[in-house]
Amino acid sequence: MSGNGNAAATAEENSPKMRVIRVGTRKSQLARIQTDSVVATLKASYPGLQFEIIAMSTTGDKILDTALSKIGEKSLFTKELEHALEKNEVDLVVHSLKDLPTVLPPGFTIGAICKRENPHDAVVFHPKFVGKTLETLPEKSVVGTSSLRRAAQLQRKFPHLEFRSIRGNLNTRLRKLDEQQEFSAIILATAGLQRMGWHNRVGQILHPEECMYAVGQGALGVEVRAKDQDILDLVGVLHDPETLLRCIAERAFLRHLEGGCSVPVAVHTAMKDGQLYLTGGVWSLDGSDSIQETMQATIHVPAQHEDGPEDDPQLVGITARNIPRGPQLAAQNLGISLANLLLSKGAKNILDVARQLNDAH
């Protein structure tokens, strides 16, 4: 009898209710805020589980004197976190989706994509230029951005401005803007500013005609071990179906173009009346040469937790077992079709030249 009692006690200790789920994140304040929001949602869904947040620095956090596009290494903000995932030191990792490459290392998958916040870019102005827009900034004003995508589009749109690289986390960039006289304004992701509670610093939100956004911008991705079915089931509740389908289309477009950090590629997606609209573009580094096109596809946005595919093969690095396969494939095909259209119009040449120029500098 006593033996059975011990077995029952052991089973209770090993039951999922007692389990601590370890969540990996970057150390920056924004990353911690984003991770806290994901953990809060998981806690609400699984009140019996405990969650421990483990923060670590990544290569991208450490190399702050070089433009991201020049470092010449993929997975700048993800490699150390993936290493911890691989060694079973954490069970899942919360990322900004735009930091996750469209091809993940073997053994990993994006197990959830959370509801997207505003994906557009924002302009934050130096205190002396508050009330201005990019259009009304004085001639030769210097605007800071760490992104080739932003610089290429904005140089084309605002030729009277000069664009220079600015690195560091959000706090560091804002301090550089406010305390030094080098920059009249800087460009940042609206979602990051909003998550930090800095709505009052948003001086201008850039519309798609001015600057399309990065693939996955404004959404959070939760990376897990691809074979860890328990954790895949656990994080599945975080999937937002519309965000998922938009981001599958965007990531398929980028992957098929073979774009990345070192080339200016941008997108804009919208879901309306059962249609998914995808606009994508590529630019030369100075913005003088560009190709942009829009395509659409009829896609039914499923309700969360309709029964999805059981075999769960990944699409552009994403596993969404609780979302039907048909809409996911339709979104992926839309991204591939748009990429093929741009490639047929000469996108590869623009991107190759951009890559060579970026590598040469």
Rank of each mutant, 00 (worst) to 15 (best):
M295N: 01
I71Q: 15
A226K: 15
T35K: 01
H207P: 11
W198N: 12
G346C: 15
V38W: 01
A330C: 15
G168P: 01
A189D: 01
A297M: 01
G260D: 15
T35D: 01
V316Y: 01
L315N: 04
A320R: 04
K132T: 10
V301M: 05
R156V: 12
G107L: 09
G274W: 10
T78P: 01
H160P: 10
Q217F: 01
N322R: 13
D311V: 11
D312W: 05
C247N: 06
L85I: 07
K43L: 08
H268P: 04
Y46I: 08
K345N: 11
L315F: 15
W198P: 06
I33D: 11
D307K: 15
L92N: 12
F163M: 11
K157G: 12
I187V: 09
K227W: 06
L257R: 15
L104I: 13
A31M: 01
V124I: 11
R149H: 06
M56K: 13
K98P: 03
R201N: 07
G72C: 06
F125P: 12
L177I: 07
A297N: 01
A67K: 15
T319E: 04
G107F: 13
L245C: 11
S141H: 11
R225D: 06
S290V: 08
V38A: 08
A249L: 04
T25C: 06
R325A: 09
V103S: 10
L232R: 04
S288M: 15
P324D: 15
E89L: 10
P127F: 10
T59I: 06
K98Y: 01
I187C: 06
E82A: 12
T298S: 13
R116S: 08
E80V: 07
L342P: 01
R116V: 01
L351V: 05
N171A: 10
C211W: 07
G216F: 05
E73S: 11
S37R: 11
G168F: 01
P241T: 08
K132N: 14
V142D: 09
V142G: 09
Q34P: 01
T190S: 04
K157I: 10
V123N: 01
P106N: 13
I318V: 14
T58F: 01
Q34V: 06
A214C: 10
P241M: 15
R246H: 05
L174R: 08
P105Y: 03
E162M: 11
A151C: 11
G260A: 04
E250K: 03
S45F: 06
V103Y: 01
T66P: 12
D230I: 15
T102L: 06
G216Y: 05
I323A: 03
A226P: 07
C247M: 04
Q275V: 13
R355P: 15
T58M: 11
T136C: 06
E223W: 01
T58Y: 01
S141Q: 11
R173L: 03
L30N: 01
T136L: 09
R201Q: 09
K62T: 01
G317T: 07
E162Y: 15
H239G: 01
E242H: 15
E73P: 07
P138E: 12
S96D: 03
Q292W: 06
S28V: 01
K128Q: 06
C247L: 05
G131V: 12
L285D: 14
V316T: 03
R321V: 03
S337G: 11
F163G: 08
L220W: 05
E117K: 10
A122D: 05
A270F: 14
D352N: 06
L137M: 11
T243Q: 15
G346P: 01
P47G: 07
K87F: 08
T66E: 14
G346D: 03
S147T: 05
A360T: 13
K157W: 05
Q296Y: 10
D121N: 04
E293Y: 07
K79C: 10
A252F: 01
K74F: 08
G259F: 11
S284E: 01
A55G: 08
R150T: 01
K27S: 12
K345T: 15
I63R: 10
L92M: 12
E52P: 07
H120Q: 09
L188S: 06
L30E: 01
G236V: 04
E293V: 07
R321A: 12
M295V: 13
E182G: 15
I110T: 05
T102V: 05
E293A: 11
F77P: 01
E310M: 15
S141W: 06
K140E: 14
H126S: 14
L134Y: 01
E306Y: 05
N340L: 08
H207R: 08
K128S: 09
L100C: 15
I291S: 07
D233L: 03
G111N: 01
R251A: 01
H268S: 04
K128C: 09
R19G: 13
I186S: 06
G144E: 05
E162D: 11
I205M: 09
E162V: 14
G335C: 07
A189L: 01
G317S: 04
E86V: 09
V316R: 12
R167V: 08
M212W: 01
T279E: 07
I71Y: 11
K157L: 12
P309E: 03
R201K: 09
L338R: 04
M212D: 01
G192D: 04
L193C: 01
E182D: 09
T172R: 10
A55N: 07
L97H: 01
S146N: 13
P47M: 01
S146G: 12
S284Q: 15
A31Q: 01
T102I: 13
A214Q: 01
M295P: 01
Q229T: 07
R167M: 07
D359R: 15
K176P: 01
I187Y: 01
A303G: 04
Q217P: 07
R156A: 14
A320V: 10
I187D: 01
K43A: 09
E209T: 03
I166G: 04
P138Q: 14
F51N: 05
G317I: 09
V94C: 14
Q275I: 05
E89P: 01
I231W: 07
P47K: 15
L245I: 12
L315W: 10
R321C: 07
A320G: 14
A330H: 03
G48F: 07
S96W: 01
I33R: 10
G335R: 01
G111E: 03
D312Y: 12
T41N: 09
Q34T: 05
E52D: 11
H120E: 14
K98T: 01
L134V: 09
K272F: 12
K140V: 10
H268N: 15
H305P: 01
M212F: 15
T190R: 07
Q194L: 09
L342T: 07
L81D: 04
R149P: 01
E258I: 13
G274N: 01
G281R: 08
V23L: 10
I63F: 13
Q155Y: 09
D286N: 14
E258A: 04
D307A: 01
T41Q: 07
V143W: 03
D233W: 03
P159S: 09
G280L: 03
E86K: 14
A303R: 13
N118G: 04
K87A: 12
D230M: 15
C261R: 03
V103C: 15
N169P: 01
I318R: 05
L244K: 01
A226H: 12
P208I: 13
L134F: 07
L329F: 11
V130D: 15
I166H: 09
A151H: 11
H207D: 05
S75H: 08
K27Y: 08
L174Q: 06
E310T: 01
Q332T: 13
G236D: 15
A122Q: 06
L68D: 09
L104F: 10
I231S: 10
A112I: 01
D121S: 04
I113G: 03
N200K: 14
M196Q: 15
D311T: 06
G280W: 01
T279D: 04
Q304C: 13
D289S: 10
K79T: 09
H207S: 13
A40S: 09
D359Y: 13
R175C: 11
H83N: 13
G107D: 12
L193N: 06
F129T: 10
T25L: 01
S141M: 13
F253S: 01
E86T: 10
R195E: 04
Q304H: 08
H256L: 09
Q314P: 11
T269G: 01
V353H: 15
D99L: 01
A40L: 09
Q50I: 08
I205T: 11
G260S: 01
H305C: 14
G144V: 05
D61N: 01
T102G: 09
Q304L: 05
D273A: 04
S344Y: 08
T172A: 13
T109H: 09
L68N: 06
V224E: 05
G280F: 01
I63A: 13
K140P: 12
E135P: 11
W198S: 10
T269F: 01
A249E: 03
G281H: 05
L341R: 08
A297Q: 05
A152K: 07
T59S: 14
L92G: 06
T109E: 03
I71L: 12
L170I: 10
L234N: 14
V38Q: 01
V263Q: 15
D178Q: 06
T66M: 10
E306A: 15
T78A: 07
L134G: 04
